[in-house]
Amino acid sequence: MLPLDDTDRRLLDGFQRDLPLEPRPFAAIAGDLGLAEAEVIRRLAALQEAGAVSRVGAVVRPNTAGRSTLAAMAVPEDRLGEVGALVAALPEVNHCYEREHRLNLWFVVTAADAEGVVAALARAEAATGLPVLDLPLEAEYRIDLGFPLRWT
């Protein structure tokens, strides 16, 4: 757990959505928090450097600017590190996790179009010699509006 002060927490929790699309958004945040613009920028940079913030930017609705899918593989335990690294090295893969299941490697593939997704899954199979389960999104029941943080 990173050492965070109350101002960091307010920055992390209060500005996950609706960042003003105006020329000086960090000045707008600074106004809300009673800080200087430079202080907001310094803190966000430090949080990003520490890994607590992935980025300050856009979350795009799935399958609008590109196409994506969730994929799974059953990897022999003694090959998990090797296969995980091979899959994670594919440029179309943006998330890749071990999960506790017979299907123990899960990853998200995103490409410009459906053909690009199919090609990336084929490359994952070719690189690893293992079959891939393709589990594309069919319906979305919850819109990603950020992650409410609870500090205690």
């Binding site: 990173l2 959505r17 960042l19 607590a52 913030v53 992935s54 980025r55 300050v56 509006l145």
Partner: peptide, 17 residues
Amino acid sequence: RGVVRRFGVVVRHHELG
């Protein structure tokens, strides 16, 4: 148009405990 669903701070859960 709803292509950008939200715009703001994207946090990483693991690093936040």
